[in-house]
Structure formats: structure tokens, C-alpha cells
Amino acid sequence: MKIIEVKDLKKIYKDGDIEVNAVNGINLTINQGEFVAVVGPSGSGKTTFLNMVGGLDSPTEGEIIVDNVNVSSLKGSQLIDFRMNNIGFVFQSYNLIPVLTAKENIEFVMHLQGKSKKERDKRAMELLDAVGLGDRADSRPSKLSGGQQQRVAVARALASKPKFILADEPTANLDSKTTAVLLDIMEKLNKDENITFVFSTHDPRVMKKARRIVTIEDGVIISDNIVKKE
């Protein structure tokens, strides 16, 4: 089942008279349950591409259809609500709210969705258990290691029951051991719960785990390889 469909996507930045084609006509389809790594050198356009897929940036041309909704046509609060209910974000530097505990960080997005306290409590604890941090529910981010913070960030991304998770260089700040633990958790969630993951990365450890590698260079896809059969 198609979860993301990208058609002729272009993003042109203007710097005075100079136009920069950050994304230059990308077509891509990602199905439910895929574990995709979008790779490419710095400045290749992969982050811009993922920002547009995540509804954080708007395309100059083309369409992004997520679960039959044309994301590129959404504006303002519609777009914010769409992101909240359909996309889970994992950022390179975790970006947890430092004044909230691990559990509260996970609950936060559910609070924005208007979920009841009981429901929030239950799901937050389930997700913490899923990322192996059930015993750190009341710890603030400052008391967690980088790897633990990123696992909380993954749990937070899953809290809203999104259609897919967009992870922007999630392992860039982690050491090998922590990266392995995090990737194992994400792989497990992908396999067990059929959650779609799309990574932006140039970390070979992530690429090794990915089952599909989309390589972008100069704003276009230069290769799209299924590396393991599902």
C-alpha cells in the first residue's frame, strides 16, 4: 500500500538573481512498512526533500501525496494538524523538551491531539517499554545519555500513531554501540508493527540496516535500490 507518493517534486531557492535547484524533479513512492534510507552527500538535497515530505517546507513544483492527501495543497493550521496526526519526526539532536520528563515528552504530542490523560499515560508507558526505557519514565533529558534521549525521541515520534516516521540523521550524534541499539529498536518496530521509517543519513550503519536505499545527488534520485527482500 502506497503511503508516500512524490511526483515531479522541485524546490528552487532564490538568492538575489541566482536560483538554486535544491530538488530538481524527484519521483518516488514509498509503501507501508518500508525501511528506507535516503542518502547522498551534503548539499545533495536530501534534507530539503525530506522537509517537503514532512510538510515542513513547501515545494516550488510537484506534489506530495501521503495516504491519499495532497500535502503540498495544505496550508497553515491544516498542515500543522496533518503533521501532528500523520508524521513522526526524529531529529539529529533529539530536540526533547528539557523541562519535561521522558514520559511527559512522549505524552506531549498526544496532549496536542487532545487524547485523554489515561490514554496518554498508557501509550507513553507502552512506547517507553518498546524503546527499553520503561524504568526512566520520570527522568528528564539531562539525566539521559544521547542514545537514551534519541530512543525517547523515537517513542515521541510514534506517540501520535503516525503514518510514517521521518528521521533526519538520527544517529549522527551517537556512538556505534548506541547506534546499534537504536537501529535495532527501530528495525523491530518496523518489523513487528509495520511502521514505515524514512531516514536521511550518510551513516553506513544505518544504510546497512536499511532495506531500501534511495541516493540523491544534485537534487535528483540517481539510484533506488532494494537491498534486502522483505
Partner: peptide
């Protein structure tokens, strides 16, 4: 981040 994850 808050705006990205859905805080209006």
C-alpha cells in the same frame, strides 16, 4: 521542533 510536531 514544537511547531514541527504539531504545536500550532
Amino acid at each position: 521542533m514544537l511547531m514541527a510536531i504539531g504545536m500550532n
